[in-house]
């Protein structure tokens, strides 16, 4: 089994504890013409699983300027069947080519049999599902020769079959597989509202020592069949103030952690994204100061 040069299973991803944004083709040329002062960029792995052309041309150049996070959206780790080996091969090739500082995927499924459903679908939090997800993560980490980060999901329904809380489920995955956690603060908020939980308690109950990256994004507001709010993880608007507040709360426990501004819909002009990254970096600097003042502040 090929093991990638710079990524032994023991090494954890090392993005700088700064802000970054999701790289969009709309911004390729502008970034190269005047590289903004951000800490890293992130790509969706599957968008670069093409043979050649402008996407690779620009990614190669931009990657030489910034640390890189590769974020998978199609591995279907939560599926009933093992991860697709052909897809793992594609991921391994991409990781080998671009040598990212971080690789992450979702706690979700998106393929069933040979059908790709192009959405991140929920898994029940039960023992059977836990064992399966852990086996799949073991296989991914073995094949890719790295420790991956797993992202907590935004969900719209819960399952009768669930016997564990989401945080216990994720904590147990981290404990068993040694993977890290990509803490999506927007997803915590969206799921907390959708399932009537306290978002801050959810943050506190996450395996915070394993957090190596944070995602922030905007959500849309809908309502459920009884008129209660149903939040949608739309990535189509700026980060909401309530999510910034939750982020600051999480940083009190975590100290500074690499933080990504995700935007996949209604992509704004580059300076707008950079301003959001700077907003995150201001909170990261504040977290660094308070952490220096209270070295024992990480109460986990």
């Amino acid at each position: 089994m090929p093991v990638l040069a710079n990524a032994s299973p023991e090494s954890f991803p090392r993005l700088p504890s700064r802000g970054g944004f999701g790289l969009k083709p709309e911004h390729f040329r502008e970034i190269l013409a005047a590289p903004p002062d951000i800490g890293f960029v992130e790509i969706h792995a599957e968008n670069y699983m093409v043979a050649g052309g402008p996407f690779h041309h620009y990614l190669e150049r931009i990657r030489s300027l910034y640390p890189l996070s590769i974020h998978g959206v199609g591995l279907s780790i939560g599926a009933e069947t093992a991860p697709d080996e052909a897809h793992l091969d594609r991921l391994a090739a991409l990781i080998s080519r671009y040598q990212p500082e971080s690789f992450s995927e979702h706690l979700a499924w998106s393929s069933h049999g040979t059908t790709f459903l192009n959405d991140l679908l929920p898994v029940p939090y039960c023992t059977e599902s836990l064992n399966r997800v852990c086996n799949h993560i073991d296989r991914v980490q073995e094949r890719l020769g790295l420790r991956m980060l797993l992202e907590n999901p935004a969900t719209y329904v819960e399952f009768d079959a669930s016997t564990l809380s989401e945080t216990d489920f994720i904590s147990e995955i981290v404990r068993r597989t040694g993977c890290g956690l990509l803490l999506d603060v927007n997803n915590v908020y969206v799921s907390a509202v959708n399932h009537h939980r306290d978002a801050r308690s959810v943050i506190r109950a996450m395996p915070l020592a394993a957090v190596h990256q944070i995602h922030l994004a905007g959500f849309a507001t809908d309502s459920d069949a009884d008129g209660y709010p149903l939040l949608i993880d739309s990535h189509g608007s700026p980060v909401a103030q309530v999510v910034w507040d939750l982020y600051a709360f999480a940083l009190d426990y975590l100290g500074p952690v690499a933080t990504l501004i995700e935007r996949d819909n209604d992509i704004p002009a580059l300076p707008v994204l950079v301003a959001e990254v700077q907003q995150a970096e201001a909170l990261l600097r504040a977290a660094a100061v308070s952490k220096a003042r209270l070295p024992q502040g990480l109460a986990v």
Partner: peptide, 17 residues
């Protein structure tokens, strides 16, 4: 065109309405 082309894989959810 070359730059305007979007990546088609993302992890957003569309509007639920």
């Amino acid at each position: 065109f070359g730059i305007a082309m979007k990546g088609k894989n993302d992890c957003k959810a569309g509007a639920g309405t």
